[in-house]
């Protein structure tokens, strides 16, 4: 992973560009001078990398790996992980089991590479007993993961990181505003000088037009990936899997972008709307948020 941070002065603010969580990321921040901007940026990016390092499912021997390899024995987690697990549990209940951090192992059979390689029920069925948050014993701060089960916080970690970093910058530089953009998941912190807004361009579904939003607080998140699907016999299989059946949810929008009070909230609403399939817009309409749904 590249550890470069490129800082440029944009006149009204500074812009730091870096890579994290397998995405291009940027942080826009106001600062009185380049020296402080550089210090704050480094501080913020270090926090993003810390969260990535701790919760990435791609790393061996990180904190998440240790939890997932606790072999059925009780594991006592730290405060930060406990809060994330509490949140995951809340989302599981609220979504009636649709949002499930234990569903990640379905990726063992589903590979959304645009091909027509659809797994059969024979390979999916054995995984289902290893999925289901209700099978996990979670009593803060102790977690007992049954043998063969895994958790994957990828569904919230990026949005959580964006919000946290925005809050962190706000605590360090309360007089200045910042925008944290981790691969399209955006969190805003502080108040901009002169009460300015951050202007964010949102691409239209066909990618040709850009709508410009003026945001001063809250967050924006996008779920879905137009490039991740399988196509067989004219049927499109989305990469949004129903943890209860192990099969893709049907009629899923290609991508949903939500604007809410925080990046984490926006991210969850976007993810849940995809899990609602053809009812995605109905779900979002209920939530009283601004959204952009691409089908």
């Amino acid at each position: 992973m590249s550890k470069d941070i490129i800082l440029t002065d944009k006149g009204t603010h500074f812009c730091g560009v870096f890579r994290a969580m397998n995405s291009p990321c940027e942080i826009l921040l106001e600062a009185p001078n380049e020296n402080l901007a550089s210090q704050w940026l480094k501080f913020a990016v270090t926090e993003v990398w810390r969260i990535e390092q701790k919760f990435s499912r791609y790393l061996l021997d990180n904190y998440l790996y240790q939890i997932n390899h606790s072999d059925g024995k009780p594991f006592y987690v730290d405060v930060e992980t406990a809060k994330l697990l509490d949140f995951a549990e809340h989302c599981y209940r609220m979504s009636e089991g649709l949002f499930d951090v234990s569903s990640g192992i379905l990726r063992k059979v589903w590979c959304f590479d645009g091909s027509d390689h659809i797994p059969d029920q024979v390979s999916i069925a054995p995984l289902l007993p290893r999925i289901g948050w209700h099978k996990i014993s979670w009593h803060n701060p102790r977690i007992i993961l049954p043998m063969g089960m895994e958790i994957d916080l990828g569904g919230v970690a990026k949005e959580y990181a964006a919000d946290r970093v925005a809050l962190l910058l706000q605590s360090v530089a309360p007089k200045y505003g910042c925008l944290v953009n981790l691969g399209g998941d955006i969190a805003l912190g502080g108040v901009r000088c002169n009460d300015d807004c951050w202007r964010i361009g949102i691409e239209s579904p066909d990618g040709r037009e850009t709508e410009e939003l003026s945001l001063s607080a809250g967050g924006l998140a996008t779920s879905g990936d137009v490039h991740r699907y399988l196509l067989k016999d004219g049927k499109r299989y989305s990469h949004i899997l129903d943890p209860r059946t192990g099969w893709p949810i049907e009629q899923v929008p290609r991508s949903v972008t939500v604007m809410a009070n925080s990046c984490t909230e926006a991210g969850l609403l976007a993810t849940l709307s995809l899990l609602c399939g053809r009812e995605a817009e109905n779900f979002l309409d209920q939530q009283d948020v601004r959204y952009w749904c691409l089908r």
């Binding site: 509490d86 609220m94 809410a260 899990l275």
Partner: peptide
């Protein structure tokens, strides 16, 4: 069921709890 449920209030509260972590590590 989920599509008819207004979950935003409860979700917002959960996010608040999540982000109200004792912050600074560095």
């Amino acid at each position: 069921q989920l599509t008819r449920k207004k979950i935003r209030g409860s979700l917002g509260a959960a996010v608040c709890t999540l982000l109200a972590a004792p912050v600074v590590e560095g």
